[in-house]
Computed example of a mutant assay.
Amino acid sequence: MGNGVLRGAVIAVAGAGGPAGRAALVRLAEAGATVVGADNDPARLAEAVDAARYANGGATVTGETVDLLDLDSTRAWATGIEKEHGRIDGLVHLVGGWRGGATFADTDLADWDLLEKLLIRTVQNTSLAFYDALQQSGNGRYLLISASGAAKPTAGNAAYSAAKAAAEAWTLAMADGFRKAGGEEGPRAAAAILVVKALVHDAMRAERPNAKFAGFTDVKDLADAVAGVWNEPAAEVNGTRLWLTEKP
């Protein structure tokens, strides 16, 4: 991290058990942050936490099984982190999920029901639960990982793109809250969106050695971009989209 801005920071990672979550835990721990991961799959979460600890001997990385679809559980998670560590400097939202079809006409609305929970409700709950602590941090960041499809939906991705667009709008409303709270001095915390086309990781490459994954973002590069957001002043990143792929 160069200037060590994350040394001693307390960062929560929602969706820590997936490939992007694992990469984020490793990168943030490497930068000297205390990292607290949450996932709904205890085994996957334990594996991710162990990997991050192993990669960074002595790093403080912990995991908690949290139901992010439940606001009370999410608030309890945030309160617990603050009680234990005295502060919260970030929430990285990596809860993902994809459902889609080949054409617009064969869209299954059951896909929407699932994606609304995974991609929107988890954003609503984490943003509401962590807002006050991030506002008080002095360098708080709420980071949503989104997809370029939110800006340019394709026919078979109506449910996914609409859910991502809603999550983006919600995050930008949070950013406006930080802006208003900051008054003339500018926001003390920031909510921002990192936009990818799709993510790729080593296991995917191993499974499909001939695939090009054109325009995809490696989870390690995403983790670098996430860590880098704390280096930028809150006023410069609040309410912005950071494009890690070409704008559509």
Rank of each mutant, 00 (worst) to 15 (best):
N210P: 07
L172G: 09
A12Q: 02
G186D: 05
K152C: 13
P233G: 04
A24F: 12
L69I: 10
L68I: 10
V123H: 01
A159Q: 14
A129W: 00
D218R: 11
A234N: 02
P42E: 04
H93T: 00
G149E: 08
E185S: 15
K83R: 13
I145K: 03
A225K: 02
V92E: 02
G138R: 07
L128D: 06
T65D: 00
N139R: 07
R188S: 08
A166F: 05
T126R: 04
F178N: 01
Y131A: 09
A155M: 07
Q136P: 08
A55G: 04
D202A: 11
A198W: 15
R53D: 06
P19T: 01
A163Q: 08
F213E: 13
I88A: 13
R241C: 03
Y160K: 03
T79F: 13
S73L: 05
T62E: 10
W98E: 09
T245L: 01
V195I: 03
A163K: 02
G58M: 06
L222I: 08
L242E: 13
L114A: 14
G239M: 00
V10G: 00
D72I: 15
A51N: 09
A23D: 07
P153E: 10
G138A: 03
G228P: 05
M204L: 11
L45N: 00
N231Y: 06
A167N: 01
D108T: 09
A9G: 12
L172M: 11
L143G: 01
A48W: 14
K212D: 13
E232S: 13
D176Q: 15
W170F: 11
G228S: 13
F213W: 12
D111S: 14
A9K: 12
N238P: 04
A14L: 08
A48N: 04
P153L: 15
L115Q: 10
Y54I: 06
L115A: 13
T171E: 06
T107S: 13
L134P: 02
L115V: 11
L68D: 11
I120Y: 11
N139T: 14
A105Q: 12
L115W: 07
V66D: 05
T107Q: 10
V219K: 04
A227K: 08
R99E: 14
V237R: 03
L68Q: 15
V66W: 00
G239V: 04
W170V: 09
A102E: 15
G96Y: 05
V196R: 01
D113A: 10
N125K: 08
M1P: 13
L199M: 07
K83S: 14
P233Y: 12
L128W: 12
A223L: 02
D72H: 09
Y131V: 03
S146I: 03
L119S: 00
P187I: 14
I193Q: 06
P187H: 12
V196M: 05
P19Q: 05
L68S: 12
L134S: 03
T171I: 02
D72P: 08
L118F: 11
A23W: 08
T245H: 05
L6C: 11
Q135S: 13
F216D: 10
D50E: 15
V49F: 06
L199I: 01
A167Y: 00
L71Q: 14
I120V: 15
L28I: 06
A43P: 09
A206M: 14
D70V: 02
A147F: 12
T107M: 06
A151C: 05
K83I: 12
V10Q: 04
R7Q: 14
A191W: 01
